[in-house]
Computed example of a mutant assay.
Amino acid sequence: MTRREWVGFCLTIPDAYEDYPFDDDNWTVLRHRSNRKIFAMLYERGGQLFLNVKCEPMRAELLRGAYRDVTPGYHMNKEHWNTVLLGGDVPHDEICDMVAHSYEITRPKQRKKRGDAQ
């Protein structure tokens, strides 16, 4: 898939929007509209397209061990973010699952209503 197709895929997720917060337009940031948290970042480096996604630490390690093209997050917290070389050895469906997982763990937290059990 192309960069634009990956952005389009991310934008199919409810509440997602595309942002370019850096001076470098090479970085496309996908965020939650309601809390502005980042769940995905697309960028090119050395002529290749990469995706950064947030991940639970144990799952991040598992994915890094399973795929050569999943590495600790470039310019991100290495424990909680992975970088994926798009078009590499990671199957398309696995990358889509990584995006969905990142979206879920960065989504706004549900507030408890008054009177709810603690």
Rank of each mutant, 00 (worst) to 15 (best):
M1W: 07
R4P: 01
W6A: 01
W6C: 01
G8F: 00
C10E: 04
T12F: 13
I13F: 15
I13D: 12
P14K: 12
A16V: 08
Y17N: 13
E18L: 09
E18Q: 15
Y20Q: 15
Y20H: 15
F22C: 08
D23W: 10
D25P: 12
T28Q: 01
R31C: 00
H32K: 10
H32C: 05
R33D: 10
R33E: 15
S34Q: 15
S34M: 07
N35F: 11
R36K: 15
R36T: 05
K37M: 08
K37F: 04
K37L: 01
K37A: 12
F39A: 00
F39G: 03
F39M: 02
A40H: 02
M41L: 14
L42I: 03
L42E: 04
G46W: 05
G47W: 14
G47P: 02
L49Y: 09
L49K: 05
P57T: 10
P57D: 09
M58P: 02
A60Q: 02
L62T: 14
L63Y: 11
G65C: 03
A66W: 10
Y67R: 13
Y67L: 04
Y67T: 08
D69I: 08
V70T: 09
T71K: 15
T71W: 11
P72I: 06
G73L: 03
Y74S: 06
Y74M: 08
M76I: 02
M76L: 03
E79D: 10
H80D: 14
N82C: 12
N82L: 14
L85Y: 06
L85C: 13
L86Q: 08
D89W: 07
P91D: 01
P91N: 08
H92L: 15
E94G: 04
E94C: 08
I95W: 03
I95A: 01
C96L: 15
D97F: 11
M98N: 03
M98G: 01
V99P: 01
A100M: 12
A100I: 04
A100V: 06
H101S: 05
H101F: 05
S102G: 13
Y103K: 08
I105Y: 03
T106A: 05
T106P: 08
T106F: 06
R111A: 12
K112P: 02
K112S: 15
K113P: 01
K113E: 11
R114M: 09
R114Q: 09
R114A: 12
A117C: 04
A117T: 11
Q118R: 11
Q118K: 14
